[in-house]
């Protein structure tokens, strides 16, 4: 197994961890962090698989560079929206994730 493939496999693991965090964590800050972990997994897969035969492929590298900048912008917008929600409702959770919206047997 080459090192590049190992990066890609680690990327798959990060993707799954991020997806689980996005679904399981009710706190919005944790959701945003999980989304970033998920995205980092995708970047690792792209770069890792792009060089699995030993030659470095500049095309996925450029795409990942583009993706990183977009991910930063999306994260900043998500943080601003989460903060807006905090200012308006005093909660860092989406309405369906709030404890008072859940049945009592939880």
């Amino acid at each position: 197994m080459s090192a590049a493939l190992l990066y890609a496999l680690a990327g798959a693991a990060l993707f799954a961890i991020g997806l689980a965090g996005l679904l399981l964590q009710p706190h919005l800050l944790r959701k945003i962090l999980a989304f970033n972990i998920l995205g980092s997994g995708v970047f690792l897969i792209l770069v890792g698989l792009g060089q699995r035969d030993g030659t470095i492929d500049p095309v996925p590298q450029a795409m990942v560079l583009t993706g990183i900048v977009v991910a930063i912008a999306a994260t900043a917008l998500a943080l601003a929206l989460a903060r807006q929600l905090l200012d308006l409702t005093g909660q860092m959770r989406l309405p369906e994730d709030r404890p008072d919206a859940e049945p009592a047997d939880d």
């Binding site: 493939l5 890609a8 496999l9 798959a12 693991a13 993707f15 799954a16 961890i17 997806l19 897969i45 698989l49």
Partner: peptide
């Protein structure tokens, strides 16, 4: 999902 992705890559 992680296992399936890994298997697909291999």
């Amino acid at each position: 999902l992680a296992l399936a992705l890994g298997a697909a890559m291999l």
